[in-house]
Amino acid sequence: MGKKCSILVITFLLLATVLVACSSSTKTNENSNQSGGEKNTSDYPNRPITFVVPFSAGGSGDIMTREVAKLAEKEFGQTIIVENKEGGSGAIALNYALSKPADGYTILNHSSTLPLTMASGEIPFEAKDIQPVATMVSNYQVLAVPKDSPFITFQDFVEYAKNNPGKLNVVSSQTYGTTHIFSLKIMEEADINFNYIAYDGGSEALTRILGGNGDAITSSGEVVQQQVESGDLRLLGVSSAERLPTHPDVPTFKELGITSIDDELIWRAYFVRPGTPEEIVEKITEVLRKVSETPEFKEYAKNTNQDIYFKTGEELTEVFNNYYEDGKELFESIKK
């Protein structure tokens, strides 16, 4: 018994030392985090960087970030930790990232939905609360109908909607998301009115349209790509600036007279907290640019049916603000 006891005591003492050592080391780390942010921007990064993902592990944003993290680790020469902070329509992750020092060690992933949820007032943040660094990939949006639909062209669709206002059911994903803005712009400029029925995601909307529970679908290109190829769905128009090389016969919305839909894309990007030193933002931009040019990343984009879309600096800020302003204006009009 005595022997057993002494062994226990020794193990405990050992553990206690280890625990104390661990906890004190994390403490010093934290201290250095806070002070390290202001000075020494030249040796950035000198410790691991955290990528915050506002979606659950395994979602498209998460998969991209893990791919980017893998490639960026080599460029940064530091370990990258991917943290999932899902929930609150992205507000949890945003809040979390903003609570960290503006030192470039916390980088937030989000998509074009971010300015829109901000604009709709769904989350208590505004465009000025976040600084976009760079977009990585994008996807065009489409309006599509089932193969047995009477609408062959976009004009057929508009004509029917004009004669039967509010009768057409258009399924889509999310209220106040990118596809919602896209649908609202179609309604506004074509001067028609249809039922916008929001589902929890593009694939749920796709199920409904395939099952005949809707007249048309607005979604990102990747969602419907398979069904378009197999002939189950027919594209009426695409949101990109140019016609798609894969579907040269489908007109763009700009050609169809919906001029406000010009390169209306869904994109995924990275953000930092405003006030992050200029040199650090530049360094991150440079790393992300290099990542976007690697063959591995191009392979990833191809496999997930997305296009490389690298935009930074003022150009990106303008894109971001446009989304925000468009959102504000259009959502205001339907809220009345």
Partner: peptide, 14 residues
């Protein structure tokens, strides 16, 4: 589904 996409395969009718 994410794993399929990463492998470059899109599950679906085809």
């Amino acid at each position: 589904l994410g794993a399929f996409l990463i492998q470059g395969i899109q599950p679906g009718p085809k």
